[in-house]
Amino acid sequence: MGFKSFCFKKSLWVFHFGGASCNNCDIEILDCLTPRYDLERFGILLVGSIRHADVLLVNGSINMRDRDRLIEIYNQAPKPILVVAIGACGCTGGIFAEGNTFAGPVDKIIPVDAYIPGCPPKPEAIIAGLVKLVNSSNPFKRDK
């Protein structure tokens, strides 16, 4: 826990990747930034470019077309990057798991650091998940 990882944990910038979601999870994610929940308290910002991101939020079921995009986005991100799978779709496939275009839950495609289940997860659950991720012993061990 040096100075570096302290700064990293205090300033997580989030990039939001929406797969083939039913749009409920997207709305709940945006909810976290509204006055009621205000993630900026923890230094969390939503950024528009993957080059600035520290956290990649993935929600929705990933289908065959999304998969290549997701891998591309993941490779374009500057390391260390944390990946959070949001919603039943992101974690396991949820109601789309049997679909014939379904390309596997997120962790079959890219490494995932945290899962936030729920359909959709409440903003409280998303915040709890992010806080747990931040407090976990070494959030960027994968790159060491």
């Binding site: 100075f3 570096k4 700064c7 205090k10 300033s11 230094g43 520290d54 500057p78 390391k79 260390p80």
Partner: peptide, 16 residues
């Protein structure tokens, strides 16, 4: 917060 942002970008993140 601005200092955290600055040092995170400077020290932690990879330059592409």
């Amino acid at each position: 917060q601005p200092f955290y942002d600055f040092f995170k970008l400077l020290l932690v993140k990879e330059t592409i």
